Computed example of a mutant assay.
Amino acid sequence: MKKILIKFLLSIAGGIISLIIFEIFLNITGIYDKKEIVFETNYRYKLDKRLIYSLKPDNVSEWETDEFHEEVFINSTGFRNRYNLKLGNYNETYRIFAIGDSWTFGHGLSDGFTYPELLENILNQSGCLNKEITVINAAVPGYSSDQSYRVIDEIITPYLPDAVIWNFTIGDVDDMLGPNPSLYDLDKENRLISHSGQYNWLYAQSIIHKFTPRILRKSNLYNMLVANLYSVNPDNLGKSRTESEILDYSVNKLKAQIKNWQSDKGKNTILIITRLPALADFSADQNQRYSYFFNNFVRMLKEQEIIYIDLTGQLKDDDTDPRRLFFKNDFHPNENGAKLIASILAKHLCEILPPMVNLPE
């Protein structure tokens, strides 16, 4: 028994020494570049069993770079809004929810300068709905279309929204083709199959990172193992589909999500789909994957008679220099971009939403 214990301890010691040697090797050679882990700075997000992660309620945070100083307030309901919401319908106000990722959230923009807040101000000043309008920013940075749909279906719906603006960007296309975990799949009849937010590599990565001592987080070896968990994700194994097959599948899944929501929880809500601009949209050598997806996506929306507003196309037709609309070292809209997005979208909404009254010149 004593010999077995000694062998066991020696094996553990040998393993630890091997790991230390490998860590030293990585440090000396520099052959491994550390990758970002989602919860590296857990100042704004919390783990969420349904959504993988979500915004921390009642939270104030700041982020400063050479280009911007971002100040963000998250209310008690988990939305980026200066006031809290109550469940149910209030006839004196018209509720519009904006959902999406960092473009909608307002990456790099402080409260008061995001497009949802600017949109609310423009609509109320126009008086085009003859009632007070509230635009709620329900976006979360980094969210995939699956996560956004779950927010619409499970979080937003109880607030009885009058309209939902679901924003898409080329970032969503990259998410579809990347290792991002899926919250939904389709069965053979193209019906939605819902998955928990817990059973995927991103949630596991965050759990491991959360409970790992800080001294170990600095290790190259630790980062190599944890940051690459997606490579052993069961969803990514045994699949060798082409880009076009993945994007076609994604369009079919979005079709099922929209039909599922509109036929049940969202049947009394106006759904508006938009394409928000990114700096790469104005590049002459834009990747063809984006055109392929949006062409098929828009065709599906027209077949389903869903309202679609292409803000990217309208900005391309505008004479404004696109470099004025985005951060110089980033691909997100700056204050100028957010103002223009809100202005163009407001004109469309005043024509779409009842009563139809044009914006003043």
Rank of each mutant, 00 (worst) to 15 (best):
F39S: 08
L5M: 14
E305S: 15
L237S: 03
R275D: 07
R50G: 07
R289E: 02
S343P: 02
K316M: 08
Y249H: 02
T312I: 03
F73M: 13
N137V: 08
T157H: 11
G15M: 09
E71I: 15
Q205I: 03
D235I: 01
K267T: 10
R95E: 08
L221E: 07
L315W: 14
Y43K: 08
I155F: 13
W201V: 03
V72K: 15
P322R: 06
S283H: 08
I6N: 10
K35L: 01
D187H: 00
L55C: 02
G171E: 08
N260E: 13
F282M: 05
F326R: 08
I309K: 10
I352N: 10
K131I: 12
G88W: 08
R95D: 13
L129T: 04
S219D: 01
E351S: 15
I270V: 13
I17G: 06
E67Y: 13
K35S: 04
A163K: 00
D58R: 10
K210V: 00
G88I: 06
K131Q: 15
G337W: 09
F211W: 11
E117V: 02
S250I: 00
V251R: 01
K210C: 02
D146P: 00
I24T: 12
F326N: 11
S11E: 05
S263D: 13
Y115M: 04
E243N: 13
Q257S: 01
G78L: 10
Y115W: 10
L177Y: 04
G238W: 04
D317A: 15
L19W: 08
N167L: 04
T41S: 05
D281E: 04
F8I: 12
N329C: 03
G337R: 08
G30R: 03
N200C: 02
Y184R: 01
P161C: 07
G266H: 06
K347G: 15
I96W: 00
V226G: 01
N260S: 14
N121E: 14
W63K: 13
L216M: 11
L119I: 09
L325W: 07
D317I: 10
F79R: 05
E92M: 05
P141E: 07
A280P: 01
R217E: 10
T41R: 10
E71F: 15
N358A: 15
I21K: 13
K302N: 15
